[in-house]
Design a protein around this nucleic acid. Structure first.
Lengths: 211, 211
DNA sequence: TAGATTGTTAATCGATTAACAATC
DNA sequence: TAGATTGTTAATCGATTAACAATC
């Protein structure tokens, strides 16, 4: 059943969820047109996406906000809490450990890990900074299911290999590298420089187009 | 000419660029198969993407690495430097200002801006932290073309509006909101919680599939 | 020439969206 | 009933990829 939800739909569900939670306090229902407006997509798209969850809308009325929220959370598997480790306690790693969005969304940062012994100790918001050698132990002891890589590109593949060996099957990679991992491991890449370079393409082209 | 390069191709060009730069020192050419391997895509895809740049490959030999790098940089508009401002001097904003990847890729962070007067002063790596009221002046004086939003969701739309009014046409948005902007403005969204939630979908489904 | 690899075609696949019957 | 809005179909659009002639 679940397997047939398209990839593109899955990546829009968190956006719908966010739009629903931050909706006007008074309303209890919401039309596909309204949701489309705030999510920045086509209303037919919204209806199609939501139809994969089952038929929870009411014709002529719209979707019940609380109900829809629950359905999306169920499909995304957000009914339980997940623990994550962040590897790399540099600026980015520490900023991520601080990041409220993770805890707000129900993720728990079990530890920051770093090869540099000087960084070990108490970290931001009481998250411990541990030596990288503790990786395997933390993953087991704290039931960690997500690995976040925030080390320089040169170390990223090694870290990924260790995470995989430790049993991690979901990785969020902030290093500017394409990781080579087993196909059973899901990797999402967040590449900050790449995002800026895509923006420059448009800057460059708009400049050319109007000159 | 440029306008016809597909969106999907544009977003892969920075990855190819990175793979080329970090290649083995000895080699001067590179086949589509090799590039596909490190970039994690299909080799036919690589050839098709590169064909949009023009015909710079040599049959039976491959692509000249230095030449290809130059062509990609030209198409992406990376032959010049761009200045960016980061709005929001919290943990994320400050980590981004520190981030070497931006300077390595030729971006200059002109300033961090924050509404909180307590945060104003000298920031990370000598980047000044200025009051948000300085926004318009900095954009003009420093010829800023990119705005990076690292404020909480509640303030993001206001910041976006001010950036647009100041003349910015490219925005990188780290706030968990879909910004409503004029269609002439290009927005890229980096939503950290969304990425984790997409990972949980796969965790959840793999767990269900194997149980 | 033989081997390697590009550039491009055509087939396939998947995602988007207009349109509208169903129905609250 | 009249108005609103869903769920779904079918058309369209765009992206991926196998295959192979061209050619170094």
């Amino acid at each position: 059943m679940k397997g047939q939800i398209p990839h593109a739909t899955i990546s829009r569900l968190p956006i719908y969820l966010r739009c629903l939670s931050s909706g006007k306090a008074g309303r209890t229902t919401c039309s596909s047109e309204q949701l489309a407006q705030v999510a920045g997509v086509n209303s037919a798209q919204v209806r199609k996406d939501l139809s994969y969850l089952g038929s929870y809308g009411v014709r002529g009325v719209g979707y019940d906000i609380a109900d829809l929220e629950a359905q999306i959370r169920r499909v995304l598997g957000l009914e339980r809490e997940y623990a994550a480790v962040i590897v790399g306690a540099g600026n980015l790693g520490r900023a991520l450990a601080h990041y409220d969005g993770f805890t707000d969304a129900g993720f728990r940062i079990a530890a920051l890990l770093d090869v540099d012994p000087a960084k070990v100790g108490e970290g931001p918001d009481g998250v411990p900074v541990l030596p990288l050698t503790e990786l395997e132990r933390v993953v087991v002891d704290e039931d960690v299911s997500i690995g976040i890589i925030a080390v320089p590109a040169s170390g990223a593949q090694d870290v990924a290999d260790r995470l995989c060996t430790a049993g991690i099957r979901s990785i969020l990679n902030f290093a500017p590298t394409v990781l080579q991992v087993d196909e059973s491991v899901e990797v999402r890449r967040v590449d900050l420089s790449t995002e800026l370079q895509i923006l420059t393409f448009h800057l460059h082209n708009r400049a050319r187009a109007t000159s």
